[in-house]
Design a protein around this nucleic acid. Sequence first.
RNA 1: GGAGAGGUCGCAUAGUGGUCGAGUGCGUCGGUUUGCUAAACCGAUAUACGGUUGAAAAGCUGUAUCCAGGGUUCAAAUCCCUGCCUCUCCGCCA
Length: 416
Amino acid sequence: MLDIKFIRENPDIVKTTIKNRNLKLDINEVLDLDTERRKILVEVESLKAERNAISKKGKPDKAIIDKMKVLSQKVDDLDNKVEGIDKKIGNLLLYIPNIPHNSIPIGSLENNKEVKTWGNIKKFDFKPKTHMEIGEDLDILDFPRSSKISGSGFCLFKGLGALLERALINFMLDLHTTQHGYKEIFPPFLVNRASMTGTGQLPKLEEDMYKLKDDDLFLIPTAEVPVTNIHRDEVLDESELPKYYTAYTACFRREAGSYGKDTKGLMRVHQFDKVELVKFVKPETSFDELEKLLGNAEAVLQKLGLPYRVVMLSTGDMSFAASKCYDIEAWAPGIEKNLEVSSCSNFTDFQARRTNIKYRTKDKKLEYVHTLNGSGVAMARTVVCILENYQQEDGSVIIPEALRPYMGGREKITKE
RNA sequence: GGAGAGGUCGCAUAGUGGUCGAGUGCGUCGGUUUGCUAAACCGAUAUACGGUUGAAAAGCUGUAUCCAGGGUUCAAAUCCCUGCCUCUCCGCCA
């Protein structure tokens, strides 16, 4: 969320932001409430000062107690008013988006800017199969049975398919920890309400989350949630920054409201594996750190030899917490689609304010850190791309060289 | 799951209703002293939200915060209730 002081002092910037993001939102209500709140604060605080002064003198006589009763009643009333206003302001602030960086295009979906492509789209001498067909033919993906076990939108990996999944997890974690300087984290997959609110999934997106009602716990939709919350309500020292974390977790998404869209195979499933990258950095470095983060995610696809493009999202297409965001889309020749396998964002201090993560500067001041995260990368769709890009006419799938050490030296997936 | 103990400033501790403007020790920072170091001594030592002065840096000032949320009271760190977390023991368990 934004600082109310910033909104108070820069209403025009905020209004322009809302317009550029194609949102309909009136910040005048917040500004009016803020003015009213400060007016009441002046009044109630002076009453409290009076009460404290009397209280300090020790046991009062009857007349003074009567006066204090009246005074306390007034304080109560005004306190309730302030509390009510605070709640309203808090709610409204949750819907005011982050300020986009001035390097990104203004507009919506069609204004997204392709900033890079890598690799060559492979030409096939035969009609390439979809990953569903490949998975079934090789008996490594089993959708009928995952439906029996759990319902639609799940996947059962078998044999070398399961090994491929495990190999990808290990390959990515090793790459990020040994080559890119990230610390490996294995967090809880269930988190409490405070954590979900901190990273912004709640209260807006509660419908999209799997929830354990009896315990008020949520299944994480991404490792971003537990990993960012590692430092919630903490003050880091400047010398500790930047902090780089990488974590494998399963991710759980209800995908409510996306019925009928990309529902086939592994493109949009309720549970998928992902290796996530999370950074806590000093404000002045965060946009450089975003470029590095993007490079770390790209490295995964390059080593796997999967062609992709990088898209800089426009103001209208970016999540409201992000100031700048790149999507990486890998090509899947079977289903003939670009699949989003990573999204790398700089949230500036938007998330840090919400999660209350600060750092102490050399001259002992407290500042909010900047947080970033990106997928490095999301597994299910990457499996789609590997199967479809590396398929052979005989039905087998060549294993990318980078993964072979993780698959017992195997070079090919064939029917066992 | 059962029984008990506990949660106060960076850490450790004191604090059974008003004089708590939260004491003390340690740590940290600044200073004095000193050939240097140590010791000793002196001083400082939070955050948030307001108000106000100022061009700004910063200052002055008020309020809140003793795990969290409710309650009692003219007045709560202190009394009551609920929740969360930690520790000890018992039970169950991969």
